[in-house]
Structure formats: C-alpha cells, structure tokens
Write a protein that binds this DNA or RNA. Structure first.
Lengths: 247, 247
DNA sequence: GCGACTTTGTTCCCGCGTTCACAAGGATCT
DNA sequence: AGATCCTTGTGAACGCGGGAACAAAGTCGC
C-alpha cells in the first residue's frame, strides 16, 4: 500500500489510527446522519424493510451512493430484499457513536447559545447539554434550558468533572480563539464553532465550523446570477460604451 | 467573452482567455465569504496591499487555491506586488452580490429564529431582516430585534410588498415543507432551511440547509474513533482490558 | 534601459467522490 | 431442485477540486 506521493507532509489520512482499517470516507460520514433521519421517519411510519432505492429517496440522495456509503460500514442488507430498518438504524447509530452519551458544553449564552441550549435535535440524538458557560458575570447564575449558567472561570473544572469531550463555541468572534484554547487545554477534543473567526487547534482536535452568514452569502451569489442576466448585460454594455467613447 | 474588466492597466486583448464569466466553481463560491472576511480583517489593521500567501494564511487556506479561486473572478492582482485590499474586497463583494440590499424573511420565531433575527453577521453583510413571521397567534404582535412579528397568514403579502427573494425557515420540521411551498409560490427563490427535514423545491429555487445536530454527529463519529480502539471493542475486549488493568 | 527579483495566473497531475452498469447472491415459486 | 426474479454490493469510468510547479508579467535597483 505505501503510496509514495513525494511530499513529506500532509498525509494525515495515511497514519490516522483507526482510519486505515475501516476508513470511512469523510463524505460518507457527513451523510450518515441523513440516513439515520430517514430511517427514523420510516420506522415511525411502521416500515420494517426498505430497498436502497426507497431509502435513498427518503434521504434525498442517489441510490447508488447510498449503497456505496453503507457498504463502507459493512454488509447490512439482504440481496433481493433490502435493509431491515431497525437493524440498519442501530448499526449506523453505533458507527457514529450515538449509542453512547455525549456531554457537551456550550460557551457563550447569547441569543445563539440560548437557542442551542434549547435545541431539541441535540437531546434526541444522544447529545446532552452538560454545562452552559458565559463570560458575563451578570448572566452567570441565571437559568437557561433547565441549567444554571456558570461563569467562564469554572470552565476547566466543569469539563473535568463532567467528562466533557465536545465543546460548542457561540461567543463573539473576538473571544473565540481564547475560549478555544481553554477548551483544548482542558481536554476537549472536538469543537463546533459558530463564531465567525478562524480558529487554530492542535493536531488531534477536530474542529468544525458553521457560519450562518456564509450560507446566506452563497444564496445571494446564486440569486444575483438568476436575476443577474439583465444587470450583467447592462454592465457589459456600459463597459463597451466606455470603450467606444475612449476611441 | 471579450468583456474586459477595467483594472489597473490590464492590456492583454490578445489571448483574452475568457476566464471567469459564466462558471465559478461551487467550491470557490463557498470560499469567497472567507476571503471577504479575511480582507475585512486586514483592512481593519490598515493593510493596503496583500500577497496571496498572506491573504491565504489569514483566510486559512492554501495560497495556490486562493489564487486559483480569485482567477475565476478575473485578474485583480498585480504580479510582483499582490492584491490591493480595498479593491479586491469590492470586487468580491460585487461578485457575491453584497453591494446590494437583500431583504430576508425569517419564518418561525422560536429560539433559533430569535437568534437569527438578532444575528449581527447578517446586517453587516448586506442582509436585512425585513420580516419576521410565526404561526403562533400569541407570538404575533410581539417585538423581536426591533421588528414586530407578523402572523404567517400575512406571509405572501409581506413578501410581495417588501420584494423579498430570500427566506429562512426556522420552524419545526413538521411545518417546514408547508412553509417552503408557500415561500416558493409567493416568489421567494432562495431558501435557507434550519429545520431537520428534507425539503422539495422546484427548479430555479436554491435551497441550502444547515442542520446543527448533523455537525455534532460528525464530531461524535471522529471522537469515537479517537478513543475508538477501546470503545469499539467493548463487548469482547472491554473485559480483557479491565482484566489487564486489574493485574 | 536592463537585469534581478517578486508574485501572480495557469497548467499539469493526482486523488477523491459520484455514477453507471453489472455480476453476485439470496428469496420465491413451481 | 431448478429457474426466475429481485436487490445488493462492487468494479470501472469519469469529472471535479486540490496542490505543486512553472511561465508570464510586473516592480525595483542600478
């Protein structure tokens, strides 16, 4: 196997520990939650067995992709029949790690942190909001989503006491890196960042980011292209005009 | 195709290689907001000119990728020098469409909708929350983020009156498709969906989704892999491990 | 004006992910 | 049991995005 791509670095897929053995492609991992949601919907409707085609349609993907994705986890289907909903659901849940309890700390209890603390989608998937932390002393002591907000000074203690491995950053951008550093040094190894800032984390720590405004900007780009025909045309005409005038 | 964007003396009429124009890769589009943010940070620090290397580092990407991305928009740099911060910023803003005003309607003013309505990142990038709508009559009439929440019955009227082209869905999953349909038939052509549901939209309508719990699930997957050796083998080897530790 | 230097814009190559198409394999019926 | 049908799992082709490397093109010093 030892592919020799002549570059001395950037090989973190290669020596990643468990990945070599059962390497599940990142793109596949990102879709597993979709399948899980689709399976839950089917189970609610009392469906016992589904074909890849049906499941794919429910999840909104191509059936070939679905089959290939599932094949990375194992051979959980029956040829000629399909997949047993409950069984497959359990297998995917186990693969993602949703069969265990994941305590999470949310840092920054502003509007967004407030919403995240109350978000039902977390609890229903094995994530438990175990601590809420904010830098504002006035906010500490208040109750949000059934939990008492603690001051950020207690961050390390809370992480240690409650075995927290996952942290969510919902602070302003200016505080994000500092909070991130403290989370990491306190032992958190997975971070979900909502602050619009570029965070640096050491190797071994996973960082994902969600930037709400970026999504809107992407939509705006395409929106502009749709109605853009007219505008771009005038722009082009203007350029041509300008050029014509110069001559 | 022979359209030439006017920039600090660009004089190649010859191989007017139709760069850019009709085809900015989706991956590039998704990074443009990052560059914009990096440029804003540089401008705040008073930087006037920046090399692709510097800018790439600020944005957290590879410099070759950055240059290729920018080349899709046009030739906005000066060889041997770099990019003029303000000029490039304006060009990207224009490309994404951030130089114009984008009225947005938010449907579903629960915790998340509340947070979105107050999100500062929108207003600072040309997005204007033009209407808040909720299905709960009790919530209609209340004030959120300086706007009066309207009942969902007024949705179509609001969209028409305020020329809204972008809609944000922050409702429960069960209401999402119905809201989506109404948005579309009222003329909205770009939708950002926060509800954990698969939405169907006709051609010509752009749909993007953000599922907060999916991000956490992806983190959980990797987290499990990290500690994975021990956790994955619980059944058989946990006992072995426990025994080994005992001795 | 000219050569050395700097940085962009582009080309080439590689690997990943998607998709098609089909062989493999189990279920069902006769 | 054997034939037929059905759906999975996978091999192979393909297109796209990423990264290294390089040529083009401008600046700067003399």
């Amino acid at each position: 196997m030892t592919r020799r791509t002549r570059l001395p670095q950037a090989e973190h897929t290669e020596h990643a520990h468990g990945a070599a053995e059962r390497g599940v492609p990142e793109a596949t991992v990102a879709r597993l939650p979709l399948y899980l949601r689709a399976l839950a919907a089917l189970a609610d409707r009392g469906v016992v067995t589904v074909s890849s085609d049906e499941l794919a349609q429910t999840a909104g993907v191509n059936s070939a992709k679905l089959r290939k994705d599932l094949s990375h986890l194992g051979s959980y289907g029956t040829r000629g029949v399909g997949y047993e909903v409950d069984y497959l659901r359990h297998q995917i849940s186990r693969e993602i790690g949703l069969t265990q309890d994941w305590p999470v700390v949310i840092v920054g209890i502003g509007n967004l942190g407030h919403a995240l603390a109350n978000y039902a989608g977390f609890a229903s998937r094995g994530f438990r909001v175990a601590a809420l932390v904010d830098a504002d002393p006035a906010r500490a002591g208040t109750e949000v989503a059934g939990l008492t907000v603690r001051h950020v000074g207690e961050l390390e203690q809370l992480i240690a006491d409650r075995s927290i491995a996952i942290g969510v950053i919902a602070t302003p951008a200016t505080a994000a890196q500092q909070v991130c550093d403290r989370l990491v040094s306190a032992g958190v190894t997975s971070i979900l960042n909502f602050a619009p800032a570029l965070l640096q984390v050491p190797d071994g720590v996973d960082l994902r980011k969600v930037d709400l405004s970026i999504e809107l900007q992407i939509l705006a780009f395409h929106e502009q292209r749709k109605n853009g025909a007219a505008l771009a045309l005038t722009a082009e005409q203007a350029a041509e005009l300008a050029e014509a005038v110069r001559q």
